[in-house]
Structures are given as C-alpha cells and as structure tokens.
Design a protein around this nucleic acid. Structure first.
Lengths: 348, 348
DNA sequence: ACGTACTTGACAACCGATTGCCATAGGCTG
DNA sequence: CAGCCTATGGCAATCGGTTGTCAAGTACGT
C-alpha cells in the first residue's frame, strides 16, 4: 500500500495526485459502477473474479485508501475504539494503553485515547462524544458512579478495567488478592501496626484493596488503620508520609506506587530510613518501582495483558459471530514482589 | 449539554431515546428545514433570533450532539489531530502528550494518539491513514527520513517535535544547548575522559546532541568518545554501562534518561558506585530521574509546554485567519539539573 | 429449444451534516 | 404606491461510501 513511501521514494510517480482517490475514480477507470467497486473490495465473493481483479489492480494503481469518515457514516461502524484513562501521565496506564493499542491495531481498529483528568464530568461527556465516533469503549478506573456508568454501558459496548458494575463486562486486576500476602510478609518481619494509605475516594480499586486488607488483618488479629484519601500522584506522598509517621505505624501498604514513591522521598527528606524506620509496600509495580531508592516492594500484575484482554472482550461484544465464549469478567492474577522497601520492624 | 448525566441522573427522562437526535429531528420539531437548523447552530447570525432560539431550545431538549463523522464528510474538516510518538511507554512523551491533549481540547479538537513502535513503516502508513481522518498531525521524534517526512508534510499540515526538516514547522527542545553546560560541569569536577552514549541511529536528536557535545569538547580540548547506538530503553543501559566501563572513561553523557537509569542499575550490579567510580549525566529529566538511585543529573526542559506550542503552531496553520505570527520554528530552552549522579573524578 | 436458477452488476436511496443558490417577504426609500 | 434591498429560510447537491432491489446475462437441466 505504501510501496511508494517505503521503497525508493521516487521510483513511482502517481503519488502527487491532488486529492486521494475514491471508489468513483476506480469505477470510472474500470468502467463499472461505484457500488461494484465497493462490493469488490468488501464482499469479494459477490463479484466476478475478473472484474474484481481489475478493480483491485486499479485500487492499487490509484493508491486508494477508503475514507473512514464516509465508511463510518454509511455503515454505522467507525472502526474506532475509545480508551479512557483518568491520567495519562500515570505510568500505571502506559502498559495498559500499549496492550490495548497492540490488540486493537491487530484487529484493524483505531484507538482513541482520552485522558479524563480524574474528572467524572469529563468522563461522562467523553463517553457521550464517543457514542457517535467509536464502536465501543474501554474505561479504565472509572470515576463515574455506578448508575451513570451502567447507563453509558447500556448505550454502547463497553468494557471496564478495575471497575465492577452489574452487567458491564470487566477486566479486574486482582490486587486485593495479594493483600493477604503483603500483610503476611509484613507480619513475618515483625510488624503489628500497619497503615493503609488510601487513594481517591471515588476509586473502587482503593476501596477493594482496603476491604481485602482489613479483612485479612482481622483474621490475623493485627490492627490496620486507614489514612487518606490521597490523590494518586507522587506529590501526595509527602502528606501521606507525614500522616503515616504521625500515626506511629511501622509499615504502610499504599494504594499505588506513585504515592509510595512520593512517601519514600519525603521520608528521606525527614531523615527517616526505609526500611529500617518504616516499611513501605506499594501497588501496581509501575515503571520506576524497581529503580527508586530503595526499590519498592509492591504488587505486580500483567497490565499489558489486561489491556489486551479488555480489547478481546470488547471485540467479542462487537462481533458476536466469533464463537468466543462471551466472558463478562476476567481476573488478572497479582503477586507480591519483594524488594528493598520492606524490612524487619524497628528494634527500638 | 450533559445535564442529564451530571445533575440528578434521573431528574429528566428523554435520555433513553433509541438513537441520538439529528438535525432532522430538530427541524421536524421546530417546523423548519434541516439546513436552517444547521445554520442556526453554526452561523447564528444568519438566522432570525426567534427561530434560532427555538432551535437551540429544541437542540437542548433532544440532547442533540452533532455527528462528527457526518460533519467531517461534508465540511472536509475532521476536528481531529493526530499525535505520533515512537513509544508510548517512554515517559518522555507523557508530558508532551498531556500538553498536546490539553491544548487540543481547549481548541475543541480531538487527539488521535498513535504509538508508531519506533518503526518508520508504521509511521508512514499511519501518516497516510491520518491524511483522511485528521486535519493535521504532530510528529514527535520521527523515525522517517527527510524526504518521506517532507513529502508527508506537503500533503497535510504538520508540526514536528525534535526534528528539523526544511519547510516543516518544528518545535525543537534545545537539549544540545545544554551540552556545553554539562561538559563544563564534568570538567569542573575534574573529568577529562568522557563518553557520549548515543541513541538510535535514526534519531536526529541523538545526532544533534552528539554534534553539540563534540564541538564543545573540541573547544575545551577534552576528549569525548562516542558509544552506541543504543535503543532508548532502560534495558539498553546494561550494554551501555559495560561499554562505558570498558572504554575507561570516568563520566558519561547519555542520550536519554531511560538508558542512563539502566546504566545506573547495571553499574550497581557490577559493584561500581555512582558517582564515586563513574559519573552519569542523562537527558530529558523524565519521570523517575529525580527518585532513582542516585538521583540523576540531567537536562531539563518544559516538555508539556513544547506539546502546547506544537499544537498552537499547528492550529495556526489550520486557521490562518488568526493573525498569530506564523512561526516555523520554536525552540524550548533547556538547562542542566545537577543531582547525585555526578561527582568528582575518582582520585586514583 | 425452453424454462429455471443463479450470477453479476447497475441504480438509487441513505447515513448526517454543510453550503451555494434561489424564492419569498418585509421594510425602506422616493 | 412602485421599486429595490436585505433578511430569512427552503431546496437540493454534495461529501464517500454501503446496501437493498432489480434487471440482464449466463449456464444448466430436461
């Protein structure tokens, strides 16, 4: 298709034709009707092989590319999928985005990536926009309430990531399941006084992580207090660290690695050593968790794969033909990765 | 527009109408022609104020949103701008992307973000796609050769970032200008044997940085050797570190922070201390450069602003009306940020 | 050789907007 | 009151495809 670009750039000349070729140009060149061209390209079996080949040759010669706008308008399908993330600068979403991008491209779809700026209003208005300009949507870490989200899902195919709403297919990154591991790890190091540093109040992930942690704590008879909420940014780490120190705990399990890394920095500024004076466990194992100082003990999961799975589930909704068992829920495993930010409780 | 969503979700009911409202629905409701509706919404002065208000009220009532596909098809403008980056998981691009996203949204445009996977072919084919589905394109760190890029720019409005090609407006992040600073910094610490760890062979940024550095080195009479090329990923840091150690230099200036961070890790593994045994200077001051171990001395610039400027320049091309002086080139200042990864030359 | 069934391709409506052109109506001037 | 101008809004073509319908053409069996 892009031989002109790829090979010797100047080998062939037709390129410079004013505007891109349309099916009408092809039709004229071949002496057939535009509709025949359309069929030859879309339902090849519907058209005589000889005509078809003539048309296909002409299409190549004219460097024809279908106009996606027109295609979308007439067929109703846009060939695009929206991907909504709350904060594009949060490294957690990089791998997710890359996963969706790869899988979508493989299936011939275009990805429309939108940063909803942690705002439910932006999210809602984006979803409404996308209703016309995308065939479906993947919503990561939605900030919307259940009703709005369910309503939006009723209007267009949707898959959520890390958000459970009745009737909406979801990919869940099962960080909560690693909470007991994390707690046991801390207990085995002698900690008995632990804090959970929570994320945004509207984050279902944060709530689920807290639930799992406090349940595990109760079973084991240790006390876990909750701090926060904090915005999921490194800057929030300072306040979180101060709160943790003030609360007197010896270890923290933190909503995500961004906050945890911020805490690491703040604790260092305050002259406290990690893990000697305070142990820190993050969540997500984002870019940076392995090379911060000290490297962060955190919970890892296959994020890119989560993105790919989300796309597969969405495409299954869009093309029900493929017999793919229409799963409604996919859970990604998570495990604790121990690095340098956790250690024995201070002897004191 | 989304009162239904935002306020009390169930306060008003019309919402659930099968498919979205069109101008024809509004026209029918108001007893006017569709074209009048179109004008009332686009050129309000072209239609009587009473009719206009009636139409606008109906539009609100029906929860009308224009169909962007149809609009694009008939008007020729898509309201979308493509943003191409070589690797979406490279933190350098986060802030750039956020800058473009914010500025585009402010101007009412949609951002189409594409990861070209460091591939010139993907980049070329994406550009061809976008020609129809976007009004313009911002290409960051293009991997395309000059001819192909210039050809693509001739076919659609384009602004490049960190890539200078004749006739193509560009935003240049002037890291080369900080190279003398970096070198002086190292010289002041006693280093006389320095290496430049270069990036991808096709990266113009890397070439420009090397040119600036070797020129500065010649002026000052110090020797700088070149290592590489290396892919711009942390994984490449291991090979780069080994090469640096083998070459016997006492300090490295590295194409970007990803490689530099990878080198930090590798040097640590090999039991070498930074900066005691080897000083490292990165480029770009990405997410992570401030909290790695040791924190990285690097070159900082206003990346998000670069994204915003790129968008402004592109929009100036798209709407020549606004008298905005049509700059063809915008240079973002860069400065050295000294952190912990540089220190005095080993005494030995 | 005729009827039937199937293949092939043309015609035209349609998707949802934009926009040039024209008809009408009303106000104004003289 | 005639004549003209302007404000207003309708008609219809157009953007580039898709798709239902139908007529013509082909091949086949009897």
């Amino acid at each position: 298709m892009f031989a002109v670009q790829r090979g010797t750039p100047m080998a062939t000349q037709p390129m410079a034709t004013g505007r891109p070729a349309t099916i009408h140009d092809i039709a004229a060149l071949c002496g057939v009707a535009a509709s025949t061209v359309s069929r030859a390209l879309a339902n090849p079996e519907r058209v005589n092989i000889r005509t078809r080949e003539r048309i296909q040759a002409a299409a190549v010669e004219l460097n024809y590319t279908p106009n996606s706008q027109a295609k979308a308008l007439s067929s109703g399908r846009t060939g695009a999928v929206g991907v909504l993330v709350p904060d594009i600068t949060n490294p957690f979403y990089f791998d997710l985005i890359r996963g969706t991008q790869l899988q979508l491209k493989a299936a011939g779809y275009t990805q429309l990536l939108v940063d909803t700026e942690e705002s439910d209003e932006v999210e809602a208005s984006t979803l409404e926009q996308l209703r016309k300009s995308a065939d479906g949507v993947i919503v990561a870490a939605s900030r919307l309430n259940d009703e709005s989200l369910a309503a939006a899902a009723a209007r267009m195919p949707m898959v959520t990531v890390n958000r459970d709403v009745d009737g909406v297919p979801a990919v869940i990154i099962d960080t909560p399941s690693a909470m007991p591991q994390a707690l046991d790890h801390l207990i085995s190091l002698g900690h008995t006084s632990v804090a959970y540093v929570s994320g945004p109040a509207v984050s279902q992930s944060s709530a689920r992580r807290w639930d799992a942690l406090s349940a595990a704590a109760e079973e084991r008879g240790v006390e876990v207090r909750r701090l926060g909420p904090f915005a999921p940014k490194t800057q929030s780490g300072a306040a979180a660290a101060d709160a943790a120190v003030h609360s007197g705990v010896t270890a923290c399990i933190v909503f995500n690695d961004l906050i945890a890394i911020g805490m690491l920095q703040r604790l260092r500024e305050r002259g406290l050593r990690v893990p000697e004076d305070m142990s820190i466990v993050g969540c997500d194992d984002i870019f940076g968790a392995d090379f911060c100082n000290p490297p962060l003990t955190t919970m890892s999961s296959p994020i890119e794969q989560a993105g790919r799975v989300a796309v597969s589930m969405l495409l299954a909704q869009l093309n029900p033909l493929a017999g793919g068992g229409n799963r409604n829920r996919s859970v990604m495993p998570t495990h604790l990765t121990v690095r340098g930010s956790t250690g024995p409780v201070p002897s004191k």
